[in-house]
């Protein structure tokens, strides 16, 4: 049973780390602010969520597990708000222009 739980932790945390890696690559490589934000929030939401999910079987108490979930929920809330605020700060001219540029391969 504990072997299965350990395997679950390794799989889930590794998958979460992969999302962080993909999000970072997207942040560096995507052409404009809006697509970079998209990459960043995916890393935060899914990556952190998977890592928290993977760590849950390893915590000793229910309270510690609830704490981990609370961290994830707060990160979701902060990430969503900051994403909205940053996207709102993008001047319309830039988003139009970069969408044309973004269609390049």
């Amino acid at each position: 049973m504990s072997l299965a739980l350990d395997l679950f932790t390794i799989m889930s945390v590794a998958l979460g780390a992969l999302f962080f890696l993909a999000g970072t690559v997207g942040l560096l490589r995507f052409p404009d602010t809006l697509t970079r934000l998209h990459a960043l929030t995916k890393a935060d939401n899914l990556g952190l969520g998977l890592i928290v999910l993977g760590l849950l079987p390893q915590v000793g108490s229910v309270v510690a597990g609830l704490g981990l979930i609370a961290v994830w929920l707060l990160a979701l809330l902060a990430g969503a708000t900051v994403g909205q605020l940053l996207a709102g700060a993008v001047p319309p001219s830039e988003s139009r222009q970069s969408h044309r540029e973004g269609s390049r391969p």
Binding site: L74, L77, A78, A80, T81, Q84, L85, G88
Partner: peptide, 11 residues
Amino acid sequence: SSSLTLLAQVL
């Protein structure tokens, strides 16, 4: 901004 208002009410 509705998202900032929401955050300032929830957090």
